[in-house]
Amino acid sequence: MVASIVAGGAVELSEAEQVALVGNLRVADLTLARACSAGNDFAWKAFLTRFRTPLYGAAYRITKDEATGRELADELYAELYGFNDRHGKRRSKLEYYTGRGSLEGWLRTVLSRQFVNRYRSRSREVSLDEQLDAGVGFAAAPAADESGPDHRLGVAIAATLAELGAEERFLLSSWYLDQRTLAEIGLQLSLHESTISRRLDQLRKKLRKRVRERLRAAGLGLRECDELLAELDVRDLNVNVAATLKQETRVETFHK
């Protein structure tokens, strides 16, 4: 019952999964959050004692600017304390915390999402003139030449990227699209940067091997494959790497 509620009721959990899920719940944090959202002043004081400094510290680290960090933290702070709705009932953002991870980690994630949302909403307001001033170009996509070896190479790369696993695509996206460092990716996956480096290296070798196999299957000779891969610059190909990496297989979801 508890596990089903916490998981959002989106999937059927096995008994072992229910035990694991309930066993991992941060009960103390969850109790504190519930007491705060219910308006318990003693709990709110305890919350402030524990989380006020980490909350503001995290906001500064996220925004890298003291004024913006304070503004972001103040905003969340008010939402955590809660507002009275039209029925006079106090509504706090802490109601959404379900104890799956630590409360401190949850606060950091909420801050990060608010920061990203705010940044995105502001960046959407940039005018076309500003984009042109900033050097953003707008051009029609070139027509694909579907006969040459470059086209076959593009097809092979796109097909190979599409068959990668989720974690492999996550690594590629983080490294090549987001330009994250090894250390940053490592932090996100709780892995050492040397492990990320090793996995990326293995992934590159695997991609190269599979692309070569596809090219061979498409009728290219060994020498032609070598020449194509040696001269390969994916930017010259008509492959939308970002879109290819976004492909998702439908899996049972826990998202709410």
Binding site: E17, R108, D178, H255
Partner: peptide, 30 residues
């Protein structure tokens, strides 16, 4: 997360730059 959940989230993260950004900021803020 449970293993199934982790796979599901990883699948989403692989294709969602916004959530990768949030995850990255969260990790850097710790």
């Amino acid at each position: 997360l449970l293993e199934r959940e982790r796979e599901s989230v990883m699948e989403h993260l692989a294709g969602c730059s916004e959530c990768r950004e949030i995850l990255s900021l969260t990790a850097a803020a710790a």
